[in-house]
Design a protein around this nucleic acid. Structure first.
Length: 129
DNA sequence: GTTCTAACA
DNA sequence: TGTTAGAA
């Protein structure tokens, strides 16, 4: 099938599919015309890629993990034992990212709270934006 | 009408 | 990632 059909059947865009190929997540063959030719199993692969992307994994990690994943109906299930460590490591990365964002929010909250102080009365210093 | 590559107010 | 231009 060509890129348009795969995009339709996976709820993605052609742009995304070309990007996945660029990241070596998909290896579609080429027709003499230059058009990409996808196989039936690519439908499932693309769905798995999207699930992993939604889990916050980057394309490099997805490339490593993808071949070790088997789908059980709707669920993606790890098929290799070493996989759990990679996934747990990524979970830590997400936890750190969350901590950083929470710290940023605390700083912003402090600034917002300052809006009520006397120093905030210098309206002449405010630019219309 | 569909896809391709390349590039970015 | 969206979008678009220009070509096949």
């Amino acid at each position: 099938m060509r890129i348009g059909e795969l995009a339709r059947r996976t709820g993605t865009t052609e742009r995304a599919l070309r990007y996945y190929e660029e990241q070596d997540l998909l290896r579609p063959a080429r027709r003499p015309s230059g058009y990409r030719e996808y196989v039936e199993t690519d439908v499932r692969t693309v769905r798995n890629i999207r699930t992993l992307l939604a889990a916050g994994l980057n394309t490099v990690t997805i490339g490593e993990v993808l071949p070790c994943m088997v789908t059980d109906g709707e669920a993606l299930v790890p098929a290799c034992p070493e996989l759990s460590t990679v996934l747990l490591q990524d979970r830590e990365r997400l936890t750190e990212a969350i901590d950083d964002l929470q710290a940023a929010r605390r700083v912003l909250d402090a600034i917002i709270a300052g809006a009520g102080s006397p120093a905030a009365r210098r309206v002449d210093a405010c630019q219309p934006a």
